[in-house]
Design a protein around this nucleic acid. Sequence first.
DNA 1: TATTGGATGATAATAATTATCATCTGAGCG
DNA 2: CGCTCAGATGATAATTATTATCATCCAATA
Lengths: 166, 166
Amino acid sequence: MELQLVSEGRRAGYAARRLAEFAERCRKGGLAVTPQRLAIIRALLASAEHPRADAIYAQVRKEHPHISLATVHRTLETLCEIGEARKVTMLHDSARYDGNVMPHHHVVCVKCRRIRDIEIPELERILDGRSELGEFTLLGSSLEIHAVCDRCNSRRVRGRGKRSRG
Amino acid sequence: MELQLVSEGRRAGYAARRLAEFAERCRKGGLAVTPQRLAIIRALLASAEHPRADAIYAQVRKEHPHISLATVHRTLETLCEIGEARKVTMLHDSARYDGNVMPHHHVVCVKCRRIRDIEIPELERILDGRSELGEFTLLGSSLEIHAVCDRCNSRRVRGRGKRSRG
DNA sequence: TATTGGATGATAATAATTATCATCTGAGCG
DNA sequence: CGCTCAGATGATAATTATTATCATCCAATA
Ligand SMILES: [Mn+2]
Ligand SMILES: [Mn+2]
Ligand SMILES: [Zn+2]
Ligand SMILES: [Zn+2]
């Protein structure tokens, strides 16, 4: 099973390309290209850390000492909405507990956050014979499948069925 | 690629078995078997919803109207520590942003929450030719590999290297 | 350059979780 | 069975992350 860390070189190249096209894509999407937005996407693309809002805030403040933390939150959210960024997990807003401690995976409705268990026997084998990956000692894994549930699909037009913050 | 929802029947059977052995495992682990703990694990195992603390609280209050929400939080945390429960994701405490919007996956250090990108070409094929799963319309997926990073491994004995709440 | 709708900064509000501490109780022991 | 006490709980304050509000600002367009 091939499985490898994305090298810093490839990451940086990708990031540079994305940044170059950012302003253009913003304008096409009807978004104003503000210095704050540029600074935030630049900070995000410059990092391999998958940063929190507060880390982006700290970075951006070096050049825009007056920027508001609220702007950082809002902008990161906007970037996700227009597809310029994503969140590592969509289940970050509150802890979801599971009494099933066997290895298994989850389907998550992107609208209402309903979660159901799934089994993917092949997946358990993904880490087989692999205990190291770069600087990481591997322990286990969990797949989050994104989906829309029936309920949310039917009530699609009206904006209901969601309780999350993000 | 086989991939299927865990049926309610199987889930319930598993839950019943776990519940039956719960008190015994608690005692072995040196944990007191309190009515609150029993009510909380019972509520968790009775649900297929992967509930939040507040949902467990609402359920448990039906039988223990005086229970404290703090106890529910504490107990769920304890259950995770002793391996009687888990969290659906360990990245629930704050949003982690990613400027890489290509399909890819992540290794996460369970101690310091450092995250790095990984690629698993085979994984992109997991949903291939599959657009439905039970009541869910599938969109995409993201694998969270749990690991310990080098930094945390070396400073293992002393209790440093963590900033998360959960 | 004047207009203006969306963007921002300051700050209040909300929501989830954790900390604190006085009180209580499950479990081992006689 | 009642005694003891480390650990558990309830009440509540504190903290942290995020969102809401609103007056002001400014990027984009004409
Ligand atoms: Mn599950
Ligand atoms: Mn990533
Ligand atoms: Zn849904
Ligand atoms: Zn680490």
